[in-house]
Design a protein around this nucleic acid. Sequence first.
DNA 1: AAAAATTAATTGTATTATAAATAGTATTGT
DNA 2: ACAATACTATTTATAATACAATTAATTTTT
Lengths: 239, 239
Amino acid sequence: METSHRNLTQQLVHELGKAIMQEKYPVGSSLPSEADLCSQYGISRTATREAVKMLTAKGLISSRPRQGIKVQAIKRWNLFDTDVLEWVLHGKPDLYMLRHFLQLRLALEPEAAYLAAQYADQEDLVQIEAALVRMKDATNGYDDTHEADIAFHQSVLSASGNPFFSQLKTFIATALKVNIRFTNRMIPVTLVEYQAHADIFEYIKNKQPQLAFDAALVTQKATLAIVNKQIEELEASTN
Amino acid sequence: METSHRNLTQQLVHELGKAIMQEKYPVGSSLPSEADLCSQYGISRTATREAVKMLTAKGLISSRPRQGIKVQAIKRWNLFDTDVLEWVLHGKPDLYMLRHFLQLRLALEPEAAYLAAQYADQEDLVQIEAALVRMKDATNGYDDTHEADIAFHQSVLSASGNPFFSQLKTFIATALKVNIRFTNRMIPVTLVEYQAHADIFEYIKNKQPQLAFDAALVTQKATLAIVNKQIEELEASTN
DNA sequence: AAAAATTAATTGTATTATAAATAGTATTGT
DNA sequence: ACAATACTATTTATAATACAATTAATTTTT
């Protein structure tokens, strides 16, 4: 995870962030005290406390005198924080979590495409098309499937011209990565999938918001339907 | 803003967070050095550094040796962080910002209503109905209009059963507050508005996702259309 | 048994010292 | 004159120590 270039505080932030996601420290439980963290990681209290403050800022923990450092309820976590999303990938694969990601994608991506068709400038279109070319190459095995896919969706978010949508790029990227974890093997982008993305690009380029919206919608609905079915089967087999 | 109960670190975090939003320290500019912050606020370097780390964790600033403490580009800000959203309310009112809020609400709220109609449990329904009663009372002047409105939308988000949607409660609340700033006076909830919310509740209660979605959609579209028109007129008058 | 006082554990803040990183400046070599 | 190098000074990063403030747990008092 390339932590060697980071300073001690940053390293500890990531160590603890990942450990919390891996439920080494479950919600409601206590982390080691400052003093114990210092000795366990062999660093000063200064660095330790700064790491604790950063995790506090991201909503993962709280610290109070005598009570110690406790993992907060998930509803307090800043789930849209870039670091938190990275750490989520270190947690257990969870089909329900995947569904949660897809439910929000279903809400976001069609509207992002709609806005992109309204507000994308020339540079935005260049970016989207570049990602599309990479996807095309990926169908032939010349580029990385998933990175190209991520780049496409992120460039559409940027093209929305809305900082809130842009901010959600990491969320979408993580959603795609979580999805990959459930389809273990490397699935090459099919021509059908490529065409769906190419259509969205065309609608954005031609400033046809409603068509872009609809095209993105069907894709998201199909993906969510698959996972909903998987969960249904899982729950049927469990009961 | 009730800072007296907070410790020194927290106070400084909020002071600087608000100052950044008020563009006292614009994007790209430097904050005072650690030493200067210490003397300006009369606190130790320990507390100062911990505040800087917390703002760094929220993406607002970065600090490097010799370069000092700089305000990051907005795309680095964690715009869905509860504190950041609170500080946004201390910035200048901005019609474009309002549109950005409404564009995301348009994406989120219909889907949240859809999910609520699928997954809301009894307790969720109780919460939504309680908020609805408060809105009804507000039409008669017996309760605070905006708080009741915020409570309604937040309870629907909770009822989605999706932690990502739940996390966006502060976002929606801030969006509503920003909206209020542009309609200066206290506008009482009209019976028409109340009925729109009551309809959504009925559809959620009766597990009719698509109807709940559509009902939420028309409301959001209408609100966004008003602001789009305002911006159009503004831009027409400017040119 | 209830209330009050005490104790002890833990984080909060302050201070001082030193290390590391780096932008800016000066020096050197060609 | 120019490029590469070395130096210097500024600022943050880390460490170590001391004490204050908070509060859970315990003990004492009533």
